[in-house]
Simulated assay, not measured.
Amino acid sequence: MVTDLIYRNFSPGAADARSSWEKFFTKPYLYPRDAEFSSLIRDVSVGLQEFCQTDASVLLLSTAGTGAVECAIAALPGDTKAVVIHNGYFGERLFDVARYHLRNVSAFELPFGEPFSIIHSDKFIKFANGQNADVLICTHLETSSGVLNDVALLGDVGKSVKAITIVDGISSIGSVECRLKDWGINCFIASTYKSLLCPPGLSFIVADSRFIAKAHRKWSYFFDMERLISVSMKSQYLWSPNPLALHCLKQVLNDINKEGQDEYFGKLQEKALNFRNKISQGGLKIFGNPAFLSPCFTILQLADNNASNWLSFLKENYGIVIGKGLGNDPEKYLRIGHYPNIAAEDFDFLADALLTVYRELKGNIRA
């Protein structure tokens, strides 16, 4: 084992952006009921509306992304007929959350790694109509496979079958453009600690009038949707806030707006393509349809179920932290998160290390 390593986090969990948080540690703590704090909430909410290209309501809450998912889904009436697109580990999680709270839940199942796209349109419409669905649910970015689902298609199908649409954008927000109004999404759920580079603990729900009219069931004291909507309309915050995360989020949104979304997301895509080109040219196999890959996650497919060996070797010899697969075949895949704050030279370091380990482990990744 090499000593004195500089550890680099490329895991697909929360982004490590601690260096950018430090400047907010000295900001005075704001009392959550005073005017200055309300102004901060208002600035962040308006910033998120602009960023997500919507005029729908922004509901901020202190929880992980899955907590926000449960808050939204569980507020629906118990007799809601929901269809969940299931093409990976997090699609399955959405299905499990929906089944926990709703009595009529069906899964539209696709093979692992196959993105929901236009080729599924007719079959999905038929399936949704057959279930008399009034709610359609899917992930935007299925992080177990690294593929993006076509949420604009989900919005179109929702209009066609007169169903409300709910999208889990926890991993996609901040890595790809978000056009909620154009997509026709009624409820969009996201967290701020991945590609938006904020400290863990802050998530949000973007909810339009159709969703709000339907989401009125009281199932939890903490996740009370009606109270969450009420305080949000007053630029207040339900329960104890995380001022550090709010200040960070305001700064991140301002920085992206100054640069321009086209420029910002273009750079992320370019970095991802350069990284993937380098490792694939060296013999590594990237999982998923290239046309649907996310700019912030890369999944490598292993030939000999040995992901744990890779993780240990990379950490002990290079200080590199990545993740292994999720679901039924965790040893078959390596999951790499490359968030916006990771520099190009770090991508190069990661690519060189992966290619070296590939040779050291004698090509145990399928070429």
Rank of each mutant, 00 (worst) to 15 (best):
K258F: 11
R335T: 04
S144N: 05
L326D: 00
K362Y: 12
G337P: 13
Y339M: 15
R366I: 15
L228G: 03
V151D: 01
A68R: 08
V176K: 03
D4A: 05
N317Y: 13
F112D: 12
D156A: 15
L5E: 02
R93V: 09
F222T: 15
Q269D: 08
S145V: 13
S172V: 08
N364W: 00
Q251P: 00
V252K: 09
L30C: 04
I205N: 02
W21I: 05
S171R: 15
A152L: 08
H247Q: 13
L273K: 14
F349W: 09
V151Q: 00
V206M: 06
G88C: 03
D329H: 05
H101C: 13
L302C: 05
V44Q: 11
D168M: 07
I166M: 09
L253I: 10
N364M: 01
I73K: 02
E270G: 08
T192C: 03
A75H: 04
E22T: 10
A82Q: 06
L302D: 01
N328G: 05
A17T: 14
N129W: 12
P295S: 05
K285N: 14
F95A: 07
T3Y: 09
I322S: 12
A64F: 12
C296L: 09
I170S: 11
S232G: 00
I166G: 02
W21F: 03
I85K: 01
P243M: 08
L293T: 10
C198E: 10
T298N: 01
P295G: 07
S294C: 03
A207K: 04
N341D: 13
G323P: 00
N254G: 06
H216L: 14
T80Q: 03
L244R: 06
